[in-house]
């Protein structure tokens, strides 16, 4: 088959060809449209309507009144503040402990496989279940945490962890740190294993100590993975109400609600309009955050 032959066989772009191309694309387009974008749009329009499960036969358009309801509620600002505390307070320790674990797990030792599996296990447990377990552990009277603290002599009287806003927030963050460390450990361990041996050897020959190797060779090498993992986790943790819902239900007095656990409250009241408005606010916040984060990332890469 010569080259000219091939060219002569190439048909011009016809409607028929266009249609068949569309036919092949259709399954993907339709699936995404029907299962992702249709529900998304349908959910979004609820935000601009009075949409209460109590009366679905009457769902008039109400403009921005659902948003106004939210913005005029003082809890909204508590919830925003809590969301930031929740994300930062959870992710920083998760990252540090996860990194440490990954470094330890990189070494070879007996039963490493089993040990790794055990470390990663929490990631497989449902967040709601973890919330309920930690709710009992942090119980002021019957909880294991007060019991341990008393036995080790760190406290003399029980702390009513979930009874005051500050200690309750601390408790839910502890639970979340415990849960999320694993994911960082998995991701960072994978990244660490991609650091070439030669690079480390070269560093050693040039006389770099352990600390210097870590900060000047290893971390720069896995930087992209680290930053993207953090980005992913920020989005996930922001959208992760299960532990809070299971542990405190947002209490005491709504002081431990984050945006998404507060949203569950509205859906439980049947008010899908307000819940949907809150959902749109979350999407907007996350899009803005992600754009800035990625821009900052690019800028640093360009330097």
């Amino acid at each position: 088959m010569s080259v000219t032959d091939h060219h002569s066989k190439k048909k011009p772009f016809t409607i028929r060809k266009g249609l068949s191309l569309l036919g092949f694309l259709a399954p993907a387009v339709v699936v995404v449209a029907v299962f992702t974008y249709y529900p998304l749009l349908r959910g979004s329009q609820m935000a601009f309507r009075q949409w209460n499960l109590f009366d679905l036969r009457n769902t008039p358009w109400v403009g921005f009144s659902n948003f106004a309801t939210l913005l005029s509620n003082p809890t909204f600002y508590t919830v925003l503040k809590n969301s930031v505390i929740w994300v930062v307070g959870s992710i920083v320790p998760q990252l540090l402990i996860g990194f440490g674990l990954a470094l330890l797990l990189r070494r070879r030792f007996r039963f490493r496989g089993i040990y790794q599996a055990l470390v990663f296990f929490p990631w497989a447990v449902s967040g709601f279940l973890i919330g309920i377990l930690f709710r009992w552990m942090f119980n002021g009277e019957f909880g294991v945490i007060n019991d341990l603290l008393r036995k080790t002599g760190l406290i003399e009287t029980n702390i009513a962890w979930l009874a005051t806003p500050k200690t309750a927030m601390f408790a839910v963050i502890v639970a979340n740190v415990w849960y999320g460390v694993t994911f960082f450990a998995i991701m960072i361990l994978a990244a660490l294993q991609s650091v070439p041996e030669e690079l480390l050897e070269a560093g050693a020959i040039d006389g770099a100590g352990k600390v210097r190797t870590l900060f000047q060779i290893v971390i720069p090498f896995i930087r992209t993975t680290l930053l993207l993992t953090v980005l992913l986790r920020v989005i996930w943790v922001f959208n992760f109400p299960e532990i809070i819902y299971g542990m405190t239900g947002g209490g005491p007095a709504q002081q431990t609600h984050i945006v998404t656990s507060w949203m569950i409250n509205f859906t439980q009241q049947g008010d899908y309009g307000v819940a949907s408005a809150l959902g749109l606010i979350v999407v907007a916040v996350l899009i803005i955050f992600t754009s800035f984060y990625l821009m900052a990332l690019k800028e640093r890469d360009a330097r």
Partner: peptide, 19 residues
């Protein structure tokens, strides 16, 4: 009442009596 009962729901109350 127990100080932590600020956060007590059904399971804690019943457990408090039960234990």
């Amino acid at each position: 009442s127990p100080p932590s009962s600020v956060a007590w729901g059904y399971p804690e109350m019943v457990e408090g009596f039960n234990n």
